[in-house]
Design a protein around this nucleic acid. Structure first.
Length: 119
DNA sequence: TGAGTGACGTCCT
DNA sequence: AAGGACGCCACTC
């Protein structure tokens, strides 16, 4: 096991994403930081790439720090991601969530104080 | 084998 | 404050 944590990283990302409550959204960085890899936010997005196939993982509830639907292009159709979010009661304008911070869901709520800085 | 890319974010200038 | 550079690391060419 050269890098067991790396493998868990994807698993954790999926696990956290699954726990995102209905009508809530979070950011890649929040998840990454929650896992103790604040600088690996990119990997979270990459993990989501494969998660989009998993219905158990609502990747559409994961947005970037600005609350913009950065990965909407990766969803089938054209505005599926936006449609899904709107279906959950979100308001999207110009590919950006309105009141993002208001509907923001912090994964730490479920993980707890497990969050730790990279060191 | 090496270089490039990417659903991001933080740090430095 | 604003913009540029770097880091992360799996995957593709």
């Amino acid at each position: 096991m050269a890098k067991p944590e790396t493998l868990n990283f994807f698993e954790r990302v999926y696990d956290v994403a699954r726990q995102i409550p209905y009508g809530k959204v979070t950011s890649y960085g929040a998840i990454a930081r929650c896992l103790g890899a604040a600088k690996s936010a990119r990997m979270v997005g990459y993990a989501m790439n494969g998660a989009s196939e998993k219905e158990d993982v609502p990747a559409h509830r994961v947005l970037n720090r600005n609350g913009v639907l950065t990965g909407k292009h990766h969803f089938p159709g054209t505005d599926l991601m936006q449609q899904l979010l709107e279906n959950e009661g979100h308001i999207i304008k110009n590919d950006q969530i309105q009141d993002f911070k208001k509907h923001f869901w912090d994964p730490v709520v479920v993980i707890g104080f497990y969050a730790q800085d990279d060191q």
